[in-house]
Design a protein around this nucleic acid. Structure first.
Length: 497
RNA sequence: GUCCCCAUCGUCUAGUGGCCUAGGACACCGGCUUUUCACGCCGGCAGCCGGGGUUCGACUCCCCGUGGGGACGCCA
């Protein structure tokens, strides 16, 4: 089936599927180039949510058709990151499925078979032009202020000429034979109708000289074969859609519904990149950002619910998510808001979970957390101050080991009043082995009265001795966490005589 | 350069012709709470890119500018 002329229009905006239709099937198709990009995670999340919302399938497919860029451990990392953030897929390279393999480099015969169909139907052609020629061609076109594209030199080679060169073993690529007349009009769920003049669409390479397919061929073939109903991906793909639609038509297939997500942006509004800060999900995880917070934050980049609610669990998002509330404009990745959200989650999530997740950071810092009671109390207090797990350690470590004082701290510690307070408290704490929090409160009041020292003159030196900082939790909390013996020990360490 | 997309507080956004004196969130500022810090609560600052239409009436619809972004690879 050839589309040689006139306009092609595809209306594929039916977002909700009929019961009779196949169920929703969407995919996240990253290339294994090292780490999972936050933009990629957002794409994965939106696909995941859409699938869950509609009781469909979410598929992970690896696009590793560029041998040069594929990195060996990348797949493993990717899978573990997906697991860690809790985006479970129904089909994928490590779990299989009915439409595998899910790694493109393992699907080479499929692409070979399909490119021949295209060749046979006259929708693709062999091209023997060298890369040098193409580079030169592009340079000239740019110089002449023309859009750089293939000039069609090999487009009309006769069968014999092609056979000849093939027999000679000449290196070749296979190109899409895209009609140059008319225009292509298509519908996108978020962009609505988009029209592109066919004359500016290039004869895209479909098979590279190493025999691997390019993204365009592989993704179209796989999306069809894997029965993908909705292609949800970043806006950077929007301008390739005509080529993809042409491929679907050339194969005689029905194109999926297209959903092009607004880009994630740096603070200067350029496409989010490694250059300007951290973009790898792994690194956020390593720095102790909770997956729940990352997902929630990222869900709000380019999507918003009808009400003003912003805090959603993954499960809740699965229920409220819808494509028609996706924004058109790009969204700046604002770390300040991520931080705020991180704080929200670190304070509201189950304390057992937070403690559990924090443990590895304590281990990394060499802190012994075997005293479970103390550990839980420390976490409970420290979580009020931070927005990521790694920072919990920074606060909680004040309850462990030796305190380190600055010269200024020492000046305060050595003041006469400070010393009186320490002596008083050592004395009082030594009398009993346990206290209720209220008793410590009244002891505080009592000592203020008896010593005649109040306000900051009282609290700062006391907190400094117990906690290593003039600012922080209140005295009963501090002593409650440290326990009697450690409290006394710390006070004694500040006693000079 | 060419084509495509986009445009509400600094940032994420609500808004689908009158409900807008433009709402919420982050950040910022102030107050309250607290011995302090943090948390929390309350309040404040701050925006419809510009110009033309259409309309009784435009943030909302249309056009033109302007600005921003993306694509233009034998990368995805």
């Amino acid at each position: 089936m050839l589309l040689s002329d006139s306009s092609q229009t595809t209306d594929n905006r039916n977002v909700t599927m009929n019961k009779d239709d196949n169920q929703v099937r969407v995919r996240f198709a990253p290339s294994p180039t090292g780490y999972l990009h936050v933009g990629g995670l957002r794409t994965a999340l939106f696909n995941y949510l859409f699938a869950r919302k509609h009781g469909g399938k979410f598929i992970l497919r690896i696009e590793d058709t560029d041998q040069k860029r594929s990195i060996s451990d990348a797949l493993k990392n990717l899978i573990s990151t997906m697991k860690e953030v809790g985006l479970r897929y129904d089909e994928g390279p490590d779990i299989g499925g009915c439409y595998g393999p899910y790694i493109q480099s393992e699907r080479m015969d499929i692409y070979r078979e399909h490119i021949h169909k295209l060749l046979d139907s006259g929708n693709a052609y062999y091209c023997f032009c060298s890369e040098e020629r193409l580079t030169k061609l592009r340079e000239e076109q740019r110089k002449r202020k023309r859009p750089p594209m293939y000039d069609g030199k090999c487009k009309n080679l006769s069968n014999d000429e092609v056979k000849d060169r093939l027999d000679q073993g000449m290196p070749f690529v296979i190109r899409l034979k895209y009609p140059k007349e008319g225009k292509t009009v298509f519908d996108d769920v978020v962009r609505e109708r988009v029209a592109v003049d066919n004359s500016i669409i290039d004869d895209q390479i479909l098979i590279k000289s190493d025999g691997f397919p390019t993204y365009h061929l592989a993704s179209v073939v796989d999306d069809h074969l894997m029965k993908i109903t909705h292609v949800i991906r970043g806006e950077e793909w929007l301008s390739s859609v005509p080529k993809h639609i042409f491929l679907y038509k050339a194969f005689g297939w029905k194109p999926p519904v297209f959903v092009h997500l607004p880009l994630l942006l740096n603070s200067d509004r350029s496409k989010l990149s490694k250059r300007q800060g951290d973009v790898s999900v792994e690194s956020y995880l390593q720095r102790g950002y909770l997956p729940e917070a990352i997902l929630n934050f990222i869900a709000l980049l380019g999507w918003h619910s009808a009400d003003d609610r912003e805090i959603y669990t993954l499960k809740e998002l699965e229920d409220v998510f819808s494509l028609d509330r996706i924004n058109k404009a790009g969204a700046v990745f604002d770390i300040e808001k991520l931080n705020w959200m991180g704080g929200q989650y670190i304070r509201s999530l189950d304390i057992e979970y937070i403690a559990d997740q924090s443990r590895r950071f304590f281990e990394e810092a060499g802190i012994d957390t075997s005293n479970q009671d103390k550990y839980m109390k420390a976490i409970n207090t420290a979580r009020d101050y931070v927005y990521r797990l790694s920072d919990i350690v920074e606060h909680a470590k004040m309850f462990y080991g030796e305190l380190i004082f600055t010269e200024e701290d020492i000046r305060l510690i050595e003041e006469e009043n400070s010393q009186k307070i320490y002596a008083y408290w050592i004395d009082e704490l030594s009398r009993k082995t346990e206290w209720e929090s209220e008793e410590l409160s009244s002891l505080t009041k009592q000592s203020i009265a008896e010593l005649g020292i109040k306000g900051k003159q009282f609290y700062f030196p006391l907190r400094l001795a117990l906690f290593g900082n003039c600012h922080g939790p209140d005295i009963p909390t501090l002593i409650g966490i440290l326990g009697r013996d450690d409290s006394i020990r710390r006070l004694k360490a500040c006693l000079t005589r």
